[in-house]
């Protein structure tokens, strides 16, 4: 199981991709995701285009020296829902498809497959894979804190990034608290699936854990505010972020990425089918 600290651990590694400016990585990730989502629902070139994008992302993952096991585990953790919805598409008849060509395969329970459903399901699965790979790559090479600073520099209002940066700081604190609660419960043999214990009691215990996290989060906020006041914080104060410039390498990375997307899009049909 991958936890918050594993992700941050990967993000602290050193590699050419890790060293790039967070703004550039954020823009590149947005470009890839928006392009992948914007592809038509069913198109003969979808498969080749998305596979080309995925291979580019995997190459970047290799360059960033990401741990393979970590990468697969993270992918598997988010897979179930998207995978299930994509896999049932061949059996459904989506409303936007006007005529169906049945797939010559007889199935029990009155189910039938269609070519259009298969194509839609496959393209959905590939799009989902590309988007998830992009986010895993982004979050494993960029620290959460740097992402917030990048968002601020890209024009997201200061009040909002102030909230986000504080939230990111406390994320690890409450993640640790959650882990401690789980360990404490396990050492006392607390199991939410234990059928010999009344369900109402189990629910009350879970409710108590959640209440305790909630109240402690609130009190943490109060404590932080008091310590901020001690350091002279007042209404209208802005958070200052260290300055950094987009270098030649960063610009090159972004241009190469955008160029690759254009290349994938305008590649001659014949070569795409060949792939």
């Amino acid at each position: 199981m991958i936890t918050l600290s594993d992700i941050e651990h990967e993000a602290y590694k050193k590699s050419p991709i890790h060293r790039l400016d967070a703004r550039v990585k954020l823009l590149f990730a947005l470009a890839i995701i928006i392009y992948a989502v914007s592809l038509p629902r069913i198109h003969e070139n979808n498969g080749a285009r998305l596979l080309l994008l995925e291979s580019y992302l995997l190459c970047l993952g290799l360059l960033a020296s990401l741990d393979f096991r970590y990468f697969i585990l993270r992918f598997l953790a988010v897979l179930p829902f998207g995978f299930a919805i994509a896999c049932i598409q061949p059996f459904l008849k989506p409303s936007f498809i006007e005529s169906f060509t049945p797939y010559p395969l007889s199935l029990p329970f009155g189910l039938s497959l269609s070519y259009e459903g298969l194509a839609f399901g496959l393209s959905l699965l590939l799009k989902f894979t590309v988007c998830v790979t992009t986010i895993i790559l982004l979050s494993s090479t960029t620290r959460l804190r740097d992402m917030v600073i990048a968002a601020n520099r890209l024009g997201i209002p200061g009040e909002f990034t102030l909230l986000l940066s504080m939230m990111v700081r406390y994320l690890f604190l409450f993640w640790g608290m959650l882990r401690r609660i789980r360990v404490a419960q396990e050492t006392r043999l607390f199991d939410i699936w234990n059928k010999k214990v009344p369900r109402k009691w189990i629910l009350t215990q879970v409710g108590n854990s959640i209440s305790s996290i909630f109240i402690r989060a609130y009190e943490q906020g109060e404590k932080s505010y008091i310590s901020m006041l001690c350091r002279g914080y007042g209404n209208g104060h802005e958070k200052y972020y260290y300055s950094s410039k987009i270098g030649r390498k960063d610009a090159l990375f972004l241009l190469a990425g955008l160029g690759y997307i254009l290349l994938v899009h305008f590649l001659p049909k014949a070569s795409l089918i060949f792939i």
Binding site: M166, L171, G221
Partner: peptide, 9 residues
């Protein structure tokens, strides 16, 4: 700070 900590919670 309270809203930020609560979001983390």
């Amino acid at each position: 700070p309270i809203l930020a900590a609560l979001a983390a919670g």
